[in-house]
Design a protein around this nucleic acid. Structure first.
Lengths: 226, 226
DNA sequence: TCCTTTTGTAATAAGAATGTAATACTAAAT
DNA sequence: ATTTAGTATTACATTCTTATTACAAAAGGA
């Protein structure tokens, strides 16, 4: 069984060592960094989990996590924050940045280990079945599958049909002009407006009985009406 | 002023009643359900806010909220979780599921009411941050929908009718000459002045009882009088 | 490559929106 | 009062917009 790699980032060097020692004892691979800058110099994508101190140096743990969340390669790496500050406000900020857990100092090593294991367990499951599903009544559209089901029955849509339905369903009751649909879904915009009509017709037919939810707004365009 | 509809879901029936009684006293409309299943049987989309117990029956409040967030019709309804468990872990799940607030039992009714009002205030701005709605009394015109409603009842307008109403309503009490209306709404200006009259007539008829608000200024044009 | 599927186009049909003209009103002006 | 200019209303004609169909052209897979 592959061992997990953990990066500990904290400006208290003693604490880093203590954590490193104990976590290695638990079978994790552990690296440490004493500042966000030092951490960011490493290849973060290699790690399976980050332990970030909130209060340190010029770049706080929050800001560091924020940065990582914006990078596709590191966005999904679970983060546990370590902090002495225990105000609600901080807790909240941590969450908005996508913290997977939050540990207040002082903490027991046992607690840290338990949390780490919990987070790893949770996220290892999560990585796969990323359920991006849009629903309207019995109409479910799965963004990862590019498939839709109606009352559980699978319906095959072509790419264009799918994209149109997705666009409309993401903004129910919003009227999209043909120009808007074209520019959002087509790469080359050199197709006729009538093309949209045809695709709408095809889509409507396939998603019965929800075809009627795609409404024509004469002179304006189309919208999905809920 | 319309009162907000709140759904309370908790397996402690006593608590439900207490909340219902107190919230009704505050002027809310309140329904209760004693399980997620019971709640889901209702038309959730009707409610303006949900109070969800975390720990109940086979479907937890978290899972219920999760389900709702995936449905276009219910995704934007604010959720406040009620829980006896005050562990950080639960708090976390609550946020990821899109909780708008989080109240730990035991709580004071005053606190609950305050939180509800805060959340409603926050989200009521958010729900239609698209100031795409023009209003005059019970006449609402939604710019993204290209639709209008009168006392909640939907009225179908044609494009020209809609554009005229929009123009007038955006500038109440301003008299627009036929020339001005033409140049603003018509692409080719090669139509007769009388065309406006006809469109005004049609519009007036459709927006009863607000037809009379579109005033004729003899020799000048039309305006919407408020 | 051949075959299948997707996608775009063109032609036509259907339907809705809009414009026009004829006529009836209405309010101001003489 | 009568006239007149401006407006309302109606029915009808026209024009626009969309729906539908069949077919052609790309795009993709085996």
């Amino acid at each position: 069984m592959k061992s997990y790699k953990i990066l500990v980032v904290d400006d208290e060097e003693d604490l880093c060592e203590i954590l490193q020692f104990n976590l290695q004892n638990e079978g994790f691979e552990v690296d440490t960094a004493f500042s966000a800058e030092e951490a960011l110099a490493k290849n973060i994508a290699d790690y399976d989990l980050l332990l970030l101190d909130v209060m340190m140096g010029p770049i706080s743990g929050f800001r560091m996590a924020d940065t990582l969340k914006k990078n596709t390669q590191t966005a999904k790496i679970p983060v546990i924050f370590l902090t002495a500050k225990d105000t609600e406000n901080d807790t909240l900020t941590g969450f908005t940045v996508g913290a997977d857990d939050y540990i207040s100092k002082p903490f027991s090593i046992k607690e840290v280990i338990a949390r780490i294991k919990a987070v790893l367990k949770r996220t290892s499951n999560k990585n796969e079945p990323e359920q991006n599903i849009l629903k309207y009544e019995n109409l479910e559209i799965s963004l990862q599958n590019k498939k839709i089901t109606i009352s559980g029955k699978e319906i095959e849509l072509t790419k264009k049909e799918f994209e149109i339905l997705k666009l409309l369903l993401e903004n129910p009751n919003h009227v999209f002009s043909r120009e808007e649909i074209l520019s959002r879904i087509w790469d080359n915009v050199y197709v006729l407006d009538r093309t949209i009509d045809v695709n709408i017709t095809r889509l409507r037919k396939k998603i019965e009985p929800y075809g009627n939810n795609i409404i024509t707004r004469m002179g304006y365009g189309y919208c999905f009406e809920s």
